[in-house]
């Protein structure tokens, strides 16, 4: 009986390993974005994004909760469509990109509900500080693309406090936190 259980378990592990497909975030075609928005004085949203990032994930339709993702962001690529502000954001008052050229997210768990919403947990490194975060995920869709590939896409949002990551520049009481908005499309390897 016990042998049987072990065999089933082993089989299921093997099968998930076989089944879980590996995906590369479509950076080439840029069907992905890492954006952020932060309140400006509390009167409007200032949007920006990171133009350069890379990542891979595993995803298996029949066992989505086994999915794993790792994304690396080149902090130098911060872009808010304003040369002087971007220079300021790269400086040691904010991202300090000389010292911390990379930001990273490594997932630890994933849970996708029936309705396509889910929760992705993992460790987020920014400005040299690593903290656990939870990203609210929305499954968007998957299927064959017209060029012989297979794609799947998600959207994720999360909110982080700048001070948690040692970014202490005072932008006012309304701007202590920022929202990250991730749009990810993966192409199956």
């Amino acid at each position: 009986m016990k042998v049987f259980q072990v065999a089933i378990l082993a089989l299921s592990i093997v099968s998930t390993n076989i089944m879980a497909d590996e995906y590369v975030i479509d950076k080439k075609g840029m069907h992905a974005s890492i954006q952020f928005k932060i309140a400006h004085l509390g009167y409007s949203w200032l949007w920006g994004r990171f133009n350069d990032f890379d990542g891979e994930f595993t995803y298996d339709k029949s066992n989505p909760n086994a999915s794993k993702i790792e994304v690396t962001i080149n902090t130098k690529s911060v872009d808010s469509n304003h040369a002087e502000r971007d220079k300021h954001l790269r400086s040691d008052e904010f991202l300090d990109v000389e010292k911390f050229p990379q930001s990273k997210f490594v997932s630890t768990s994933f849970m996708l509900n029936e309705d396509g919403t889910g929760e992705l947990k993992g460790n987020f490194t920014l400005h040299g500080v690593t903290k656990p975060i939870t990203i609210a995920v929305k499954y968007i869709g998957e299927g064959d693309d017209p060029w012989g590939g297979y794609r799947v896409g998600f959207e994720g949002t999360t909110r982080i406090a700048l001070a948690d990551y040692g970014i202490l520049k005072n932008l006012g009481p309304a701007s202590k936190e920022l929202d990250l908005i991730l749009s990810i499309e993966g192409v199956r390897k």
Binding site: K76, N81, H82, A83, E84, D86, K87
Partner: peptide, 30 residues
């Protein structure tokens, strides 16, 4: 080159906008 790194013009005393000409690198402003 700092202010015009992303193609924005520089305002000259609200009189005229001096346009950007050169954009040589992503790190231009730095």
């Amino acid at each position: 080159l700092i202010s015009t790194a992303k193609g924005a013009a520089i305002e000259f005393f609200s009189l005229i906008d001096v346009p950007a000409i050169i954009s040589f690198s992503k790190q231009q402003a730095d």
